[in-house]
């Protein structure tokens, strides 16, 4: 159902197709889908490095990337959802501060039975003995804080370039 008048079109001396594209009326309903939240903005010269995880948009969680927190608090009648979330935030802040400038990825927190497993990538910026010190420190301190066994599972990354998936 267009309102364009062919005679008027001739007066304007514009191609009908281009005019229609600008001024068309659509009748289908609007989707308010926000595709820009949680996504990185690309730069002009495509110079911004991103890891694999950063390149995958939030709606791809569960398809091409997975969750950062693994627990059962959102299942039926499980409870502890708010506690788990707060604890996870605490763990992430703690890891960021304790492994300062060493974390190469998001901190993945997995809860199995009464155990918390913290997994992440770290840069090989300090000698291994310091990593062993930090892992012992993290495990002992968080175990006492959260009242359950905590285990740190690390993988090291030699070079920052190794984790770059693409530039945008």
């Amino acid at each position: 159902m267009s309102v364009c008048n062919p005679n008027r079109m001739l007066l304007l001396k514009q191609p009908i197709r281009s005019w229609c594209m600008r001024r068309a009326i659509q009748t289908t309903s609007v989707t308010n889908k926000n595709l820009r939240a949680g996504q990185y903005k690309s730069t002009i010269h495509r110079t911004k490095p991103l890891t694999y995880e950063e390149t995958q948009q939030p709606f791809k969680i569960g398809a091409t990337k997975s969750w950062n927190s693994w627990n059962t608090s959102n299942l039926h009648e499980e409870g502890r959802a708010s506690e788990t979330t707060t604890e996870d935030m605490f763990i992430r802040k703690f890891m960021g501060g304790t492994w300062h400038r060493l974390l190469a990825s998001e901190v993945i927190i997995k809860r199995r039975h009464n155990m918390i497993i913290i997994a992440c990538l770290v840069f090989q910026a300090v000698p291994p003995r310091k990593m062993y010190f930090l892992s012992g420190y993290t495990e002992e301190l968080l175990s006492t804080f959260l009242n359950c066994p905590v285990k740190v599972e690390l993988q090291t990354v030699k070079d920052k370039k190794d984790i770059i998936f693409k530039y945008i």
């Binding site: 090989q124 291994p128 003995r129 310091k130 990593m131 062993y132 010190f133 930090l134 892992s135 012992g136 420190y137 993290t138 495990e139 002992e140 301190l141 006492t144 690390l154 993988q155 090291t156 030699k158």
Partner: peptide, 26 residues
């Protein structure tokens, strides 16, 4: 992890005791 697995006698001892030392610090 390949970077963190000790090989020599000295490394084995240092890494084990570093971990213990971290726990003591905590």
């Amino acid at each position: 992890d390949p970077f963190l697995i000790p090989v020599s006698i000295r490394e084995k001892q240092t890494y084990t005791l570093s971990r213990a030392s971290g726990k003591r610090a905590a």
